[in-house]
Design a protein around this nucleic acid. Structure first.
Lengths: 386, 386
DNA sequence: CGACTTTGTATATTGCTTAAACAAAGTTTT
DNA sequence: AAAACTTTGTTTAAGCAATATACAAAGTCG
């Protein structure tokens, strides 16, 4: 059944509009909301009153007068509830407890020895349980759990395939919702990272953003028109297996010359030269001390990153590309060759308004994004398209 | 200013919903519309009455009874107005006059000798003028003109760059609207083709579709969630310059190893073997007569098409890919090697629900899509997102 | 201190969807 | 063939949300 229009819908649209307007601005008066949204002052007053009853909006007292009566400032009550954001990596589980605006209240992490579902799930439950216990008393309590995982996820929160964990068809959302009776959002780690950067990193006021996470492989999250784009079955963005060398090295996926063979940590194993180390943090250490092989390896990876980015730029024409993931820590040595390659190979019109940046959230992007995704799910977002 | 909700909006949403419901089904009664949309019978009656006044819906007389009063069947009045769809190619200008449902009423085409704006524009105006003259008498007359052009187009209908025409920053929409005082929609040829296939070709009931137009270059139109996706400045889909060979042949775009060097008509010039002809229709003739060189050339192009398609599949995860453009006429020789390459190189999960097909609209896809785009612009489409 | 501004609320009006009753036009049962 | 049931589409009254307008409250400024 399609969505039809009635008065309840009108109210929902306007209430949602007001809530998110307040959320995105530190302090606003009713009068300014009326100006900004185009809604009548009376409408704003009514809906704000309801939002106050819902405890989602608070009155912060009088503000500065601009030549008349002092405005009563409103602000979003980020502490109306809490959410948990979690990232599952190959060797590590990290999580945060944060408020509805993504402010971190508490953190937790633990190393993973084994990858079988039972062990990982037990560890996840323990960690979530501990964070829930730490949650401050709020009107709504913990209202959502978001998890970023290194694999393909469908629209029902099923992890279809996670090669690095050797997982297949794991009904993760269902499993967690059964344990905690709280709405759970499962997403690909790159998608979560993209959502994090969009809202808290470089991506503010950006409509089309591409987040590329480089680590043990390459994944990417695609934001289109301010929203996460997922393909027909929810697992687009597997750009690591994009072919950049038609007759290149055979890949485990069945293809040849995949991008991530040249531009992720996988390149270490195929390096033409002798490397002093095979783990990114160690290699960064060597590069920092001037090791030529390490520097050259990063520079080469940077160049290949640039080649793949060019393909994405020509397909998506994004406004901003953010490079994240473990490899992004080697920015110093990756960036020159990467930017050079992109500058040389991109169509002139695409270059005009494109910025390529490294993540400001660092390795926390996915975790923060997952949590915020759960928060947005709780708040809802109804709007009109013309 | 953002879109707010009020009663006028509710009416607009519901009227639009009813109109498009009727448009997509050959015949419907008010009662069935009420069931299908979830709107109250009274609401449907009122809005249908308005649509009848607007001449967009007609009553077709009584239908079959299903055990009670006979229903009064309604249908969309495709002849409430006409639109013109046009495709500008390097050597040819083609256009159609069609009704609001994309049914062709009249066709026209002419060869282009020169590419300077004045000449082309004059020819376009003549052709449009002739089609307008041929338009039958309808309540609204000719309500829109849609044009597909071989180049990048921004959101204001400006042709930013069309290398094959040597055009730059041509305000095409403005120029045509000034001449005819009818709304004009300008789009990239591949985007128009994608829209045509979505609505009249293979793409019915498909949400994520990729249309790849192979000819003198490669362009692609991306349909996401049933809608044409355009990048931040309106010219995404330039996938022809995607790099599939890191150290490949230098391209005029500044990069190396671009897809279209290997998988479009450009491959003829770089062919490793002696070709009996250098124009696609001729080469198809030779292949049909069993010429080995021609057959091998097409097979090679097919393989490279497959490589590039794999990249697009991994990035977009579409449900359907449609191959169109002049080269698609060589389907017989392209398809085997192309399908084989895709089957070999695609991630298993992507393969599950993917279909790769050749265009059913043939070379008319862009023209039909451009016209229909203009028709949809006239009818409007207001809806809600949750 | 009086005139003007700005903020936020109260009131009457408008207009849309809806539920329920109803009229019209069939079919099926007895 | 008449009565009973079905289906279709319209009419009517009710409910409700946004809006314009008026107004009260609380400030600034000369």
């Amino acid at each position: 059944m399609k969505v039809t229009g009635d008065q309840a819908l009108v109210k929902k649209i306007n209430k949602s509009l007001i809530l998110h307007t307040i959320r995105k601005h530190p302090e606003l008066s009713r009068a300014r909301i009326s100006e900004m949204t185009g809604l009548n002052k009376a409408t704003v007053s009514n809906l704000v009153a309801e939002l106050q009853e819902d405890q989602l909006v608070l009155e912060a007292g009088p503000g500065e007068s601009s030549g008349g009566r002092k405005p009563l400032m409103l602000h979003f009550n980020a502490m109306a509830g809490c959410v948990i954001g979690m990232e599952l990596r190959v060797k590590q589980l990290t999580a945060i407890l944060c408020d509805l605006n993504g402010n971190v209240l508490s953190e937790a992490d633990s190393l993973l020895q084994r990858h079988d579902l039972d062990d990982v799930l037990a560890e996840m439950k323990t960690m979530i349980g501990e964070l829930i216990a730490k949650a401050p008393s709020t009107p709504y309590g913990v209202v959502g759990i978001g998890v970023g995982v290194p694999g393909m996820v469908d629209e029902n929160g099923v992890v279809l395939f996670a090669p690095n964990l050797a997982w297949e068809k794991v009904h993760l959302r269902e499993l967690l919702e059964e344990s905690f009776s709280i709405p759970v959002v499962i997403d690909n780690e790159a998608n979560s990272g993209a959502f994090g950067e969009l809202n808290f990193g470089r991506g503010e006021d950006v409509r089309h953003l591409l987040y590329v996470s480089a680590g043990s492989g390459i994944g990417s999250g695609i934001i289109i028109a301010g929203e996460l784009y997922k393909g027909s079955r929810g697992y687009a963005g597997e750009t690591g297996h994009m072919c950049i060398e038609a007759e290149g090295i055979p890949c485990s996926c069945g293809s040849r010359g995949c991008w991530e063979l040249y531009a992720s940590e996988k390149a270490y194993d195929l390096a033409s030269m002798e490397l002093p180390a095979h783990r990114t943090p160690d290699l960064i250490g060597f590069a920092a001390r001037g090791d030529a092989a390490a520097e050259r390896q990063f520079s080469e990876i940077g160049a290949y990153l640039g080649i793949g980015l060019t393909n994405l730029i020509n397909s998506f024409n994004p406004e901003l590309i953010v490079i994240g993931g473990p490899l992004s820590e080697a920015r110093e040595w990756l960036e020159p060759s990467m930017q050079q390659m992109v500058a040389k190979r991109t169509l002139p019109y695409h270059k005009q308004q494109l910025e390529i940046a490294f993540s400001t959230l660092g390795s926390r992007a996915a975790m923060i994004g997952a949590g915020f995704s759960a928060a947005m799910h709780f708040l809802g977002h109804t709007r009109v398209m013309v």
